[in-house]
Design a protein around this nucleic acid. Sequence first.
RNA 1: GGCGGCAUAGCUCAGCUGGCUAGAGCAUUCGGUUCAUACCCGGAGUGUCACUGGUUCAAAUCCAGUUGCCGCUACCA
Length: 522
Amino acid sequence: MPQEKYYITTAIPYATQKPHIGNCYDQVAADAFARWKRMRGYDVWYLTGTDEHGQKIEDLAAKEGITPKAYADRITSGMREIFATLNISYDQFIRTTDDYHEAAVAAAFQKLYDQGDIYKGSYEGLYCTPCESFWTSSQLVEGKCPDCGRDVAPAREEAYFLRQSKYQGWLEQYYADHPDFIAPESRRNEMINTFIKPGLQDLCVTRSTITWGVPVPFDPKHVMYVWLDALSNYITALGFDAGENSDAFRKFWPADLQVIGKDVCRFHVITWPIMLHALGQPLPKRVLAHPWLMFGQDKMSKSRGNVVYADELAEIVGTDAVRYYMLAEMPLAVDGSITREAVLERYNSDLANVLGNLVNRSLTMTNKYFDGIVPAPGEPFELELSLQAFALETLRQFETALEDCRLADALEAVLALAKRLNKYIDETLPWALAKDPEKREYLGTVLYHLLEGIRWLAALFAPAMPATAEGILRQLQPELNPVQTLAGILPLKSFGGLEPGGKVTQTPTPLFARLDTDKVLI
RNA sequence: GGCGGCAUAGCUCAGCUGGCUAGAGCAUUCGGUUCAUACCCGGAGUGUCACUGGUUCAAAUCCAGUUGCCGCUACCA
C-alpha cells in the first residue's frame, strides 16, 4: 500500500513587523497536526512562509532608505527565528519574492486572463491624492480620508478583475456538497450570508499605484495585488506553474488542511477556491479559520502596549508550555485569551502538578521498589482493565478531536489520562504494597501500568509538546533514542507495548519546575 | 443599519435533535495520603441555567419579544 500523503499549510504572514504570539498560532496549530500525521506514518509536507509584496512594505522600506527586499529579508529571518524557538517543523518556507513563485504567479495570471477569468476594467472609488489611496464611503472618517483627514474625490483607475461572479452558482454547490470544507461552521455561514447570497462581486486583483509586486506579464504598469500573489503560494510552493505540473504538485495537491486566521477567511474560502477551479485544480479538503488570541479582552497591538511575543514568553516558561497554552486555550469559534495569570495557572496545574509530577513520582517509585527496572506485569485486575480501557478511549477521543480541528479538546482528553493515572496511584497505594512481600507481583503490575501510561502520555502529548515527549522518553527509556522511539511509537493499538526489563533513569528530574505565581514576571 | 451567534456555579466553559436530584476544570474550603515538584486523591458546596411571555405531561434545551455582549459586513496584507 502506498504511503498516504498529508499536505498542510499556514497562511503566510505579511512581513512588516515581528509577529506576536497570536500571529504564530497558525504555525503552532499546523505543527501539531503535522507532527501527529508524521507519527501516524503519513508522508507529510508542511508549508509556511511570508508574504512580502505590497504598499506597506514598500513604504516601510522607503522610510529606512533600504529596498523592500532588504526590509523583507530582515523581517522574514526574524520570523524564522521565532518559528525555530517554537519548534515549528515546517518542511518548506516560501517567500512570495522567491523567483519560482513570481514566475509561477505570472503564468497563472496569464492563464486566467487568456481564459477570460481575469479582465481589464476600472476601479471606482473615493481617492485621496496625497495618500494615493482609494477608500470606500464606509471607511471614511467624517467624510475625510481616514489616514490624513483630507478631502477625497471620486476617481477611477484602470485595473484587472477576477471574475468571481461567474462562479457563484458553482461555489454555492460546492459548499453544499462539502459541508466540512470550512471549519468552524459559523464561518461558513458568515461567508454564505454575507457574500454569496447577496451575489458575488468581482475582485480587483491589481494595482497601478505601487511597484513592489509581481508585474502583470502583458501589462507591466500594473502589479498584482496581494490576493492572487499570496494565495498562489500554496501551489507554487509545490512547483505548480500553470502549465506543467511538478511531481511534488501531483503528489501533494490538494492540501489536506489549510490553517488560517479568521481575518483572511473570506479570501481563502471564496477567492482561492475560484482561482483553483478556474485553473482546473481541485480544492483543499478543509480550511480551518481560527479566531484570534487576545490579551485579556483586548486585541493585541503595539499602540496599546499589550503585545505578547512567543519567544519572550518561552524564555520564562519554556517552548512547550507556550505551545501547550496556545493550543489548549484557543477555542474554535470565539477568540481566545492570554493573561499572565492564565499562563501560570495552566503551567502549574496542568504541566507541573498533573503531568510532570506524575512522571516524577512514578519513576521514583520504580527506582525505589524495583531498582529502576521496568517490572513485568502480572494478570491485570478489574482496576487495571478499566485503566487500559481508559487509555484506549483517550486515544480515540484525541484523534476524533483532531479530525474535527478541536485541538483544545484533544489536549484536554490527554490531560484527563494523566489525571486518571494519578488517581490510580491513590487507588493502589504502591508504598503500602511495597511493605508486603506477598503483594510484590501486584506492585509490579501497578508500576508497569503507570510507566506504560506515561509512555502513552508521551505519544499523545508529542504533537503539542515534542520536547516534553522526548524528555519523558529520555527518563523512561534512557538507553533508547527518544526521537526514534517517538517516531515509531504509534500505533498504540493496545495497552502494554512497553518492554519489561528496561531500566528507567536513576535520577528522575521534574519536567516542569513549579513557578511561584508571585515571583514570576511575565 | 443588514446577517449570524452567544448569555449556565467566583473564574473559564460542557450540556447534540426538549425528559431522571443541572455538569467539568481552575480558584475556595474540609478530609485523606506521603511515592512525588507543599504535589496527588476524595468530599463540600453555593447556581431564580440573562429577563418576560408562549408551546408541552415535561424546557437550560423549542418559539416570540426585551436587554446585554460578540462575530461578519475593508479593494486594511
